[in-house]
């Protein structure tokens, strides 16, 4: 099963992870991304995320399909925050389930690495004295 969401609300990863996986699976693996407080010596007060939402969901769907075709994973969940995210909160949750952990780890890594390269989402770091859009994968 695929679950793909962009949301303004905090990510409830306890519930999301509890809903990931089936009784046939032996592993549920998760990646949780959080904003870093320090960015090149500047203190980040919070992050603001913006997306081209319709295209972002299509890209997330394509990445999930590609992962599910390449590895025998059962469930694939991708949830990304939009708007303001404080440094102690999750900005993204990716979770997969599989019969064995090895294929789950490989799929999880592929999914988060590809999201960071292709999904049209941008972050703006907000500091005490200003803000800046980050394009750190140029």
């Amino acid at each position: 099963m695929k679950t793909l969401r962009l949301q303004n609300e905090p990510i409830d990863y306890t519930s999301a992870l509890a809903a990931t996986g089936t009784v046939e699976d032996g592993a549920v693996l998760a990646f949780i991304g959080t904003p870093r407080r320090d960015s090149g010596g500047r203190t980040v007060e919070h992050i603001f995320y913006e997306a081209y939402e319709s295209m972002a969901l299509k890209e997330m769907d394509r990445i999930a399909d590609e992962a599910m075709a390449a590895w025998p994973i059962t469930d694939c969940l991708i949830v990304h925050r939009m708007g303001r995210v404080d440094p102690d909160k999750a900005s993204i949750l990716v979770a997969v389930s599989s019969r064995h952990r090895e294929e789950g780890f490989a799929a999880l890594r592929f999914i988060i690495d590809t999201i960071k390269k292709t999904v049209p989402i941008w972050k703006k770091e907000v500091y005490a004295d200003g803000s800046e859009w980050v394009s750190d994968r140029v």
């Binding site: 990304h80 900005s91 999201i115 390269k117 049209p120 394009s135």
Partner: peptide, 10 residues
């Protein structure tokens, strides 16, 4: 047509 900088989500 959409125009944007390199992505930085995650």
């Amino acid at each position: 047509l959409a125009l944007f900088p390199p992505v930085s989500g995650g």
